[in-house]
Design a protein around this nucleic acid. Structure first.
Lengths: 193, 193
DNA sequence: CAAGGTTGGCTAATACGATTAGCTTTAAGC
DNA sequence: GCTTAAAGCTAATCGTATTAGCCAACCTTG
């Protein structure tokens, strides 16, 4: 019996692809194994458990999202950077709804956890964008959380088809970006109360 | 063997309580049955499946959230209404993280689905609050989606302990409300671009 | 190149949770 | 007091995660 040449990253990658196709609940050890041309128990040579596999998918998704955002905002600033970041994040989640869904509920085990590190990279790119707005330094964390909430919320709701009625979601997202831009502008210290 | 006097609502209520205590993954037919003093198969006299039970939990959570928001904004308008609504929603999710988590991923089966109806009630209260801002009628849907995304995102991230660093989350939420208020104000048609 | 140990795959077995089948008793209505 | 639908039970089935233990394939080292 020839070897399949697997490693943890390959298993996680196959599971992530499966998650995107079937949804997070469709990620089963049997299906992942089948896709890799291997029997189910063999997966345990590379991952600890299904929970561990989901954690790996979440870390992969967060890292890919961080890359997408970093690339999107490179060379941009101000409102252009904000818009590019929002779209990059939203596009990533729409393109990979299953693996991003794995991040909801996944909790980092510690500061060195790849999931935590990837999350830090996302936050870092967001912070760079926010530097284009005149936010007081001691309010930066609040602004980051708010922005992250806005994007996470929109992306997950849209990915889950949570928006029932059918006004164009692309127009809504453009509206959201405008709203965020104006809100951030008005939070600068010399803006009227 | 005396009867337990169950009905679908009682089963869903017990499951929802369990979800809050153990997380959504902890909701198992066996545990729900045990909590109701009944054997597992008996639950199937009241619900169709575990998926059906989760759907019921989601509908319950959405209905309770709708009630909380309705009560919170009663008699208020403008910025006060916005703040009260945001806090009511956030507080509800923090108080019932498990059952609210059931709404992510639950999808309404049709227009008459209780989950859809409860969602409409939430949207309705949000729309009432937004009427205090001068939003163009054809942009109301965009504003609703944006507001919902913001709240859903913040509440779920906080409930999942997704905010790693430890700046006071209450202060962050106050900042978020201020941000939303200013953003909405500036989206009025006579505001500068 | 041959020996030996480590790794990655396999089959078989176990455990647990969801679900179904079919029986029995309760309780509600006539 | 009967009849009957509903609500509970036990027993059985099935799918999925996980573990145990075996064997072949690769890598190392002489």
């Amino acid at each position: 019996m020839p070897r399949a040449g697997l490693d943890p990253a390959a298993v996680v990658a196959a599971a992530a692809a499966l998650a995107d196709e079937t949804g997070p609940a469709g990620v089963t050890m049997g299906l992942v194994a089948e896709r890799l041309g291997v029997r189910t128990p063999s997966l345990y040579k590379h991952i600890d458990s299904l929970a561990d596999l989901n954690h790996g998918i979440a870390a992969l998704a967060m890292a890919e999202a961080a890359d997408a955002i970093r690339d999107a905002v490179a060379g941009l600033s101000g409102r252009d950077a904000l818009a590019a970041m929002c779209r990059a994040f939203r596009d990533y989640v729409l393109k990979h709804p299953g693996r991003y869904a794995a991040t909801t509920g996944a909790t980092a085990t510690g500061p060195g956890d790849p999931l935590a590190l990837a999350g830090e990279r996302v936050i870092g790119s967001m912070a760079a964008v926010l530097r284009g707005y005149r936010i007081e330094p001691d309010q930066m964390n609040h602004a980051l959380r708010t922005l992250r909430s806005l994007l996470h919320g929109f992306a997950t709701l849209q990915a889950a088809n949570g928006f029932q009625w059918d006004a164009d979601q692309e127009v809504s997202f453009t509206w959201l970006i405008d709203f965020a831009h104006r809100g951030l502008m008005s939070m600068s210290p010399d803006s009227p109360s």
